[in-house]
Design a protein around this nucleic acid. Structure first.
Length: 423
RNA sequence: GGAGAGGUGGCUGAGUGGCCGAAAGCGGCGGUCUUGAAAACCGUUGAGGGUUUGUCCCCUCCGUGGGUUCGAAUCCCACCCUCUCCGCCA
């Protein structure tokens, strides 16, 4: 959530910021609500103060054994006035809060202007797109030929956008997961974390998926109100919701492997074939909770941590900074890492690393105690995929394929594959 | 699923209608003492918001949401969570 004080202090500047997001903020409506809020709040608090002092007076009179009947009569309809004022205030505050809950984060000044992913800017690349002396197959064909990846069976079991893996290919996905978890926990200093795969709506509000993006989520029936997680970011970041963290505990660095569930509403016709866009997929997620002055650096290093997975796997990739129109709701700046997929002859997103500033922290009430001020202040949050396991599996399959349609095992995965060389 | 107990400040824990934002202890911070440290002693120490910039005043918060009352941590209702026992069960 954005800081309402930025809007009070300089409404024009705030409105300008939102324009970069393509949002026309109704400043007049806001100002009107704000002045209402001010008036009503002052009145409400004055009434509360009066109630308190009169009640106190009655208490003291009673303690002295005086007759309190005249004092009670004086109170009159104060209670009713107060109740009305409190309800009015609540109404205005709810309206303001609803507006702010739906406003996206301000963009970092380094974010390039632009409307779609075509306007993202490459910042670096690693490796060269893999070349073959035969026509490379895509993962769908490879998986089918190996008889270890089946979309038809999955659609029978459940529906479209699911997959079954079997045999060595299923193990390869597990190997990738293990490899990533080990790399980040042993070499990059993240704490391995296991979390619930279902969350309540408070957690989803905290990280920004709700209230605006309910359609992208799977909600459980029944009265729990729980949702399947769209990413481990939700349960992991909510670890620090409603807490004040000691300065010496920061930064907190978590790595978690979870399945992710996304309804992919609005993506009909996109990546309908194959494992690129599924309702269920595995992901290893990196989350950092940091001091504000260390956030930029944390974002860079977290992105590097994610890239290291691809380097160790020997998969060519490039990193881009997302343009204004492509940057997600809660993020102030996002780097996407795109891996080379020979089957599509394209770079495809395999990780998205975002810096949220204090946007999530404000919703989460996640704070740290700044030793310099002695006061609780909002932390900053940074996270990214490290990596999307399903897409990494695809990338390994397509980049490591042989002419016969088999898959060589990257060196770093061999220990996790019983030293197997090839599938 | 059934029966019972309980949710209070960073922690432990008192508080059954007004003098309670809340005892006491621990912890934290500052100081005295000390060559230094410990101990001891003294002081201090919740969060959010409003008004204002007059650092004076005011408001809210004792699991959450309602209610009763002039007045609620305290009484009533609903819900959530934790613990114990029984049942069922990976």
């Amino acid at each position: 959530m954005l800081d309402i004080n930025l809007f009070r202090a300089d409404l024009d500047a705030a409105t300008e910021q939102l324009k970069r997001r393509g949002i026309n903020f109704d400043g007049e409506h806001f100002s009107e609500l704000e002045s209402q809020r001010k008036t009503i709040q002052v009145r409400t608090q004055a009434l509360q103060a009066e109630r308190n002092s009169r009640s106190k007076g009655i208490g003291q009179a009673k303690a002295k054994g005086e007759d309190i009947a005249p004092l009670l009569a004086e109170v009159g309809n104060l209670g009713e006035q107060l109740k009305a004022a409190e309800e009015e205030l609540q109404g205005v505050q709810a309206e303001l809060s609803a507006i702010f809950m739906e406003l996206p984060n301000f963009l970092h000044e380094a974010v390039p202007e632009g409307k779609s992913e075509d306007d993202n800017v490459e910042i670096r690349s690693w490796g060269k797109p893999t070349t073959f002396d035969f026509d490379p197959r895509d993962h769908i064909e490879l998986g089918a030929q190996l008889e270890q990846m089946d979309f038809d069976i999955a659609s029978k079991i459940t529906g479209s956008r699911f997959v079954t893996l079997s045999g060595p290919l299923a193990r390869l996905q597990r190997a990738l997961t293990q490899f990533m978890l080990d790399l980040h926990s042993e070499e990059h200093g993240y704490r391995e974390t296991y979390v619930p795969f279902m969350v309540n709506s408070e957690s989803l509000k905290g990280t920004g998926q709700l209230p605006k993006f309910e359609d992208d989520l799977f909600k459980l029936s029944g009265d729990s109100g729980y949702y399947l997680i769209p990413t481990a970011e939700v349960p992991v970041t909510n670890i620090v919701r409603d807490t004040i963290i000691d300065a010496n505990k920061l930064p907190l660095k978590f790595v978690a492997h979870t399945p992710c569930f996304r309804s992919e509403a609005g993506s009909y016709g996109k990546d309908v074939r194959g494992m690129v866009r599924q309702h269920q997929f595995e992901k290893v997620e990196l989350v950092q909770i940091v001091r504000p002055d260390e956030a930029e650096e944390a974002h860079e290093s977290l992105t590097n941590n994610a890239e290291m997975v691809l380097q160790k796997l020997g998969l060519p990739y490039r990193a881009v900074v997302l343009c204004a129109g492509d940057t997600g709701f809660s993020a102030t700046k996002t780097y996407d890492i795109e891996v080379w997929l020979p089957g599509q002859q394209k770079f495809r997103e395999i990780s998205s690393c975002s810096h949220f500033g204090n946007f999530q922290a404000r919703r989460l009430k996640a704070r740290w105690r700044n030793p310099e001020t002695g006061k609780p202040e909002l932390v900053h949050t940074v996270n990214g995929s490290g990596l999307a396991v399903g897409r990494t599996l695809i990338a390994v399959m397509e980049n490591y394929q042989t002419e016969e349609g088999r898959i060589r095992i990257p060196d770093v995965l061999k220990p996790y594959m019983g030293n197997r060389e090839i599938i």
